Amino acid sequence: MSQNSELEISVGDLIPSPTTQYQAQTILGNGVYGVVIQCRNVTTDETVALKMIKSMENIDCAKEEEVTLQTMKALHSDRFNIVRFNESFTYKGHYCLVFEHLDMDLQKFKQISPGQHLQLKQIRPILQQLATSLEFLNSAGIIHADLKPDNIMLVDHVRKPLKVKVIDFGLAFDDPEEQIGDLLQPLWYRSPEVLYKEPFSGAIDVWSLGCIAAELSTGRPLFPASNENELMRQFAFAIRDPEHEGNFLPHAFWPRRWMEGRFMPG
């Protein structure tokens, strides 16, 4: 199935944990730091997503992610559209995190939708659920810092249409002061505070959500920059006051009437 830092995982392989065994079924994703494997819990017959860290060098990062996951789990995060974390263990030197299995990410869902964008009747419930997630994270003092369509999953787009959950807390943190000046957030969803290396808060996740909302509606990224300088230029163009050429709106990127006409219930 996959060659993974000298560890080969094949279909049918049993991966033991302290509580059960997981039978490997298929690869869901393979990145630089880890591989995500769809597995069957042989004890409960539940399908799960097992995230296996490839390198020993990244175990500390995985353990930091687990601390965040455990903190959220103690606060019942699964009630707030956050992926459910089950357990962690080590398999042949590879740190493993086990999550509930989810269906597909928003990026893929958008691509299979007519015109590669969603209708407002689809966007509104998705945004409501994500706003609930961000409200929970804010109350827990956690900043996701990697919010993008790829990290928002549909639970089951057939049987539970439009029910979503936020995943991947590998870059999440709880002390923004320590992160000022660091490279945070994917470029297209990067907030002005982060871009200009200014003090920030959990509002940077709200900025990302706004960018995602516009993308779901139009089918295109709101700020499709190829680098930070281009992103700065796109920001400057977006906040220009159309009624007073050369002036800039200090309070918002889009007029309230524009937002109300597109996203607010009529």
Rank of each mutant, 00 (worst) to 15 (best):
M1C: 10
L7S: 12
I9W: 07
I9Y: 08
S17F: 03
S17L: 06
Y22V: 11
Q23L: 02
Q23R: 12
A24F: 04
L28C: 07
G29E: 08
Y33F: 13
Y33A: 08
C39V: 09
T47N: 11
V48Q: 09
A49K: 00
M56D: 12
T68K: 05
T68P: 00
R84L: 08
T90W: 02
H101R: 15
D103K: 08
K108E: 13
K110R: 15
Q111A: 13
I112R: 15
S113Q: 15
L118P: 06
R124V: 03
L127I: 08
Q128L: 12
L130I: 02
L130N: 02
A131F: 08
T132E: 15
L137F: 09
A140Y: 03
G141A: 03
I143L: 09
D146A: 01
I152D: 01
I152T: 01
V158K: 14
L162G: 03
K163D: 10
I167T: 02
I167H: 00
I167C: 01
P176H: 11
E178C: 08
Y189M: 03
K197W: 04
K197V: 04
P199A: 03
S201Q: 08
S201G: 12
D205L: 05
S217R: 15
R220N: 12
L222N: 07
R233P: 06
Q234S: 07
A236Q: 14
F237C: 14
G246K: 00
F248E: 13
P255V: 06
R262A: 01
